Computed example of a mutant assay.
Amino acid sequence: MKPRGRRLWRLALAAVLALPAASVLVVLLWGLVPPPVTWLMVMRSIEDGVGIDAPWTPYDDIADVMKRTVVAAEDARFCSHHGFDWEAIEQALDRLNSGRSLRGGSTISQQVAKNVFLWPGRTWTRKGLEAGFTVLIEAFWSKQGILEMYLNVVEWEPGVYGIAAAARHHFDTTPDRLTARQAALLAAVLPNPLEWNAGRPGGYVSSRAATLQARARSVRPADMPPCGR
């Protein structure tokens, strides 16, 4: 092989090896300090022309009822899986095979991987990267850290990210003062926050919130961080 060809192969190999190393480093970094913004926030801002309202709230300053409700709504087996809820994935595929729309199956950990480190999309490349980042955050972050990140980066309305901005925007309150009903309304809109409004809920959102409020009462301490670790 000619010297130029060997150099190109070495550069390609270095690039392949650098990607996993860079991924580990950025996961470690955001495990220590909150990210100022995420890719999703930046892309939404560019696409929709809205600002980014995303103040950070430490885990202990978020009402316990909000934590319980979002786990009940988004990932009931959050404490018992290691990033992937295979039972939920199987149920989602069963719905697809029966002719219904594919929904559900993504854990809170997967949603954090997608929202913090990646761009919106449904390509196999992005799904593969999502799986890789899910493994990394489960390996290097605590369950409490994952849930804290989720509650601080999830989108609740265009330009409104995280529980502090959502609590103020929809209910003129702070994350530590959210009531059970307010927490349920916020959790109820998470599947479609760009269309549904927690502060002005329609009939479906109001009904779903009532269901989630009841479901949250059954969430046991063992189902919440620190998850017995």
Rank of each mutant, 00 (worst) to 15 (best):
Q91I: 11
Q91R: 14
A92Y: 09
L93V: 13
L93R: 13
L93F: 13
R95Q: 14
R95H: 12
L96F: 15
L96W: 15
N97I: 11
N97T: 12
S98I: 00
G99H: 01
S101C: 02
S101W: 08
L102D: 01
R103K: 13
R103N: 13
G104K: 05
G105I: 03
G105D: 01
S106M: 10
T107H: 00
I108K: 01
I108W: 00
S109L: 02
Q111P: 08
V112D: 00
V112S: 01
V112P: 03
V112H: 00
A113H: 03
K114L: 11
K114W: 07
K114V: 05
N115C: 01
V116K: 02
V116N: 04
F117M: 08
L118D: 12
W119M: 12
W119V: 12
P120S: 14
P120D: 15
G121E: 06
G121H: 04
R122I: 06
R122Y: 13
R122N: 15
W124D: 14
W124F: 15
R126A: 01
R126K: 06
K127Y: 08
L129R: 07
L129Q: 10
E130Y: 10
A131M: 13
G132A: 02
G132C: 04
F133N: 00
F133G: 02
F133R: 00
V135K: 09
V135Y: 13
E138C: 07
A139D: 01
A139L: 12
W141R: 02
S142L: 14
K143W: 00
K143F: 03
G145I: 00
G145A: 05
G145P: 02
I146Y: 03
I146R: 02
L147H: 01
L147I: 14
L151Q: 05
L151E: 05
L151A: 04
L151K: 04
N152E: 10
N152M: 09
N152Y: 07
V154K: 03
W156R: 03
W156E: 04
E157T: 05
G159T: 09
Y161K: 06
Y161H: 11
Y161N: 05
G162Q: 05
A166H: 10
R168K: 11
H169P: 07
D172L: 12
T173Q: 06
T174Q: 13
T174N: 11
T174W: 10
P175L: 00
P175T: 06
D176P: 06
R177C: 08
L178N: 05
L178A: 03
T179R: 01
T179W: 04
A180T: 07
A180D: 10
A180C: 05
R181C: 08
R181L: 12
Q182E: 15
L186S: 09
L186Q: 09
A188K: 00
A188I: 07
A188R: 01
A188V: 07
V189Q: 02
V189L: 02
L190T: 14
P191C: 02
N192G: 12
P193E: 11
E195D: 09
W196I: 08
W196F: 15
N197D: 15
A198N: 13
A198D: 14
G199E: 01
G199A: 06
G199D: 03
R200M: 12
R200I: 11
